[in-house]
């Protein structure tokens, strides 16, 4: 039984896929920063940002639906921003009476709310494209090249490698629990109190922990057996070529244009 849903990479032979991972990571971060730096209501700039996304999506040989479907992942968090509709000073747009309070939506509030959502929506799509066009080991190489300490990169790499192993174990534990979670009738009450159920779950967590701890010991021994002495060495095959530099330059230029669009209109 295998869990393979932790891969987000979509294999294609496109220019975007082949771009140096460093460039992709940096441009993604710059794009997100650019979005956040734009003022509220910078509709033309936001539209340009979206156009850029569609362009990159196409260049990566993905369908329109591919990116669009996944773009709403951060939507639930929009709830947190709802209050700005009512609390930002401006001209009233609509209002409701709730008990003794009046809730009034202002135009500035509406603009801020919409801008927040759009910024988030645009940013998450670039992050999706980054992951879809870059294999995880290459993402790690990019981080290392960008001066993230090797210790941290290695920890994340190990985590990624063992996610699948542990996820399989969790599924097995959950299945074993389910196999013993009988009820007397089809829609009968679940047995045991919440406390008991939490305790069972906690014991599973404890078991998983102990197994993971032991595994880390064995992996450590395997590493020692092949010469590890505390300093993890890896081969980083990525070398920036002319095309990578070109893309980096073009990308940055586009973002500058978007900023100008946003601040000058």
């Amino acid at each position: 039984m295998h869990v393979s849903t932790f891969d987000r990479y979509e294999q294609r032979s496109s220019a975007v896929h082949q771009l140096d991972p460093r460039v992709k990571v940096v441009l993604t971060l710059l794009f997100i920063v650019s979005n956040v730096a734009l003022p509220d209501g910078a509709w033309w700039a936001f539209a340009a940002g979206w156009a850029l996304l569609l362009l990159v999506n196409r260049a990566a040989h993905f369908s329109f639906g591919y990116l669009f479907k996944r773009s709403f992942i951060a939507l639930p968090f929009a709830l947190a921003a709802v209050t700005v509709l009512f609390t930002l000073p401006g001209t009233a747009v609509a209002s409701w009476q709730i008990g003794s309070h009046t809730l009034t939506v202002s135009d500035a509030g509406l603009m801020r709310f919409a801008s927040i959502l759009i910024r988030s929506w645009l940013s998450v799509q670039m992050a999706i494209l980054l992951t879809a066009t870059t294999q995880f080991p290459d993402l790690m190489h990019a981080l290392h090249h960008l001066r993230v300490p090797q210790v941290l990169v290695s920890i994340i790499s190990f985590m990624y490698r063992y996610l699948f192993v542990l996820a399989d174990e969790v599924i097995r534990l959950l299945r074993a629990r389910d196999a013993r979670s009988a009820r007397l009738t089809t829609d009968g009450k679940l047995g045991g109190t919440i406390w008991w159920r939490a305790k069972v779950t906690g014991s599973m967590a404890g078991q998983l922990f102990v197994r993971s701890f032991d595994r880390s010991d064995r992996v450590y021994n395997a590493m020692l057996s092949r010469g590890y002495r505390g300093h993890l060495l890896t081969m980083n095959p990525h070398v920036m070529n002319g095309r990578d530099w070109l893309m980096a330059g073009v990308g940055t230029a586009v973002l500058v244009i978007i900023q100008l669009l946003g601040w000058l209109t």
Binding site: E169, L208, S216
Partner: peptide, 16 residues
């Protein structure tokens, strides 16, 4: 030198 395998696998544990 135990840090990387321990922290990495523990991180996987937390995630799982």
């Amino acid at each position: 030198e135990r840090l990387v395998p321990l922290a990495g696998i523990m991180a996987a544990f937390i995630f799982a």
